[in-house]
Write a protein that binds this DNA or RNA. Sequence first.
DNA 1: ATGGTTGCAGCGCAA
Length: 262
Amino acid sequence: MLTIASWNVNSIRARLPLLLTWLREKNPDIVLLQETKIIDDQFPREEIEDLNYNIATSGQKSYNGVAILSKFPIEDITRGLSGFEDDQARYIEAVAGGVRVASVYVPNGSEVDSPKFDYKLAFLHHLYEHTQELLTYDEPLIFGGDFNIAPSDDDVYDPQAWHEKILCSTPEREALRTLINLGLTDGLRALHPNETSLYTWWDYQGRGWRANQGLRIDHFLLSSQAADRLSSATIDRDMRGAAKTSDHAPIRCQLTGDRVIS
DNA sequence: ATGGTTGCAGCGCAA
């Protein structure tokens, strides 16, 4: 069994104590982190290595930043999306534990039809093109990350309030659906088809968490070779209720077997 | 309630 987790930590410096507690408790084999907000030289490697993780990072100052933690050796590390000139650290990919994984931090987009929204769609377009190539490998492949898109109104606490707003607009939903339609499986929804309140993010502001006003914007997307082995997918909601926490909850999934890529 | 909260960096910006 292989456990893969993903968490937008909103600063690994601010989240380190809680991250370490959660790693000890859940002991995931592979962890995909987003919004580490730290340059690689300052990444808190030692504390995490002490829990027997290897680490691959792609960070920058103040914003963005992604990383992969793995109990297995991390091989074939690539940073950024092929063919996409981007000075923002939002994508890191590697092979570990017999699966190809990537930590993905899709741009938020700010407001629909803003320049940042155009950048969001451009990122998704290049993720689509890169995925087309990855799928030709016929490997177990898992994207985990903050996609900043709620796939449908079922993933939103108040669809009317969010109608055509950022994270929920038609163009970004179409971009995500097009990506998934290449042959990927939305792991959380596939295993919880009728679950309401399947949320991964709650706004810090207002009554967000207290009133369970959440959105499902963090996802696992699996190739068929990975989806065939998917046995569980869960949201660690309790972490969102912890003190000094991120506005995102971690997500975790389990694959049967291990080390399929030889 | 055009507010509210958090983190970084050093107080406006991104989310």
